[in-house]
């Protein structure tokens, strides 16, 4: 006689289990962790280059760079004087919690306020891999088309904030800021929107303040 056993049990992937452990560790050590995702070249590294100087006046920061190949981005970040560690995935198109766990030996979490992770440029796979972060930032640039949230919904659904970068190029494109905002909000009504240009400096103060507020919220334990 067959028997039915009711379980109603949630199934977690290995990455989710590990990410939950990391999140617990980050909470205990009071480290604010931010995961930056975007398609290749939207301006993740540029946004950091432009604002790490002012951010590191009040915060002790560490940066983890994720790329398939090269340490170009880590070299760029190192020039700002902020400690940086480069993960080369050697083929993987996204970072995983296990890679972050291994990278942590390069940082002193006790004295770190803010850990910034720049993910591999890719609008698909990084969305499925929780890294234990407290804030997920999706960067989109004005040359990519305002339909991208709808085409890559998982990414914009999982992000807390969408930064629209390369605002200086807006006049040369058919990118509609209102449309992209509406598209992102139709997936994720809570998503916050920032507009920046790493060329003209537009919105960079707002971006820096946003990051600062996030870090202070975690570090002061509010």
């Amino acid at each position: 006689m067959s028997k039915k056993i009711t379980l109603e049990q949630k199934v977690l992937s290995r990455n989710d289990i590990l990410a939950a452990e990391l999140r617990k560790l980050f909470n205990e050590e009071q480290v604010a962790v931010m995961n930056m995702v975007s398609s290749p070249g939207s301006g993740k590294t540029s946004l950091l280059e432009k604002t790490l100087g002012s951010l590191s006046q009040n915060l002790s920061i560490g940066v983890i760079e994720g790329d398939i190949q090269t340490d170009n981005d880590a070299v760029r970040i190192a020039k700002t004087g902020v400690p940086v560690y480069q993960i080369q995935t050697g083929g993987a198109c996204h970072l995983e919690a296990e890679m972050i766990r291994r990278a942590l030996v390069n940082f002193d979490l006790k004295s770190t306020d803010l850990l910034i992770i720049e993910n591999v440029g890719n609008l698909v796979c990084p969305s499925a891999f929780d890294l234990g972060e407290g804030l997920r930032v999706a960067v989109i640039s004005t040359t990519e088309g305002d339909d991208k949230p709808l085409k890559y919904p998982a990414m914009f659904r999982s992000a807390d904030v969408m930064v629209i970068n390369k605002m200086d190029l807006l006049p040369y494109t058919d990118f509609d800021v209102q449309k992209v905002t509406r598209n992102a909000m139709s997936l994720n009504p809570e998503i916050q929107i920032l507009k920046t240009s790493c060329r003209t400096g537009e919105g960079l103060n707002e971006w820096a303040n946003f990051v600062k507020n996030f870090a202070h919220l975690i570090v002061s334990g509010v």
């Binding site: 006689m1 039915k4 009711t6 379980l7 049990q9 009504p189």
Partner: peptide, 20 residues
Amino acid sequence: GFDTQLLQGEELEIEDIIID
């Protein structure tokens, strides 16, 4: 409008198993 609540869609769960 955006004032909505997600009721279903994020599940990944084992409901039950049938054994002998």
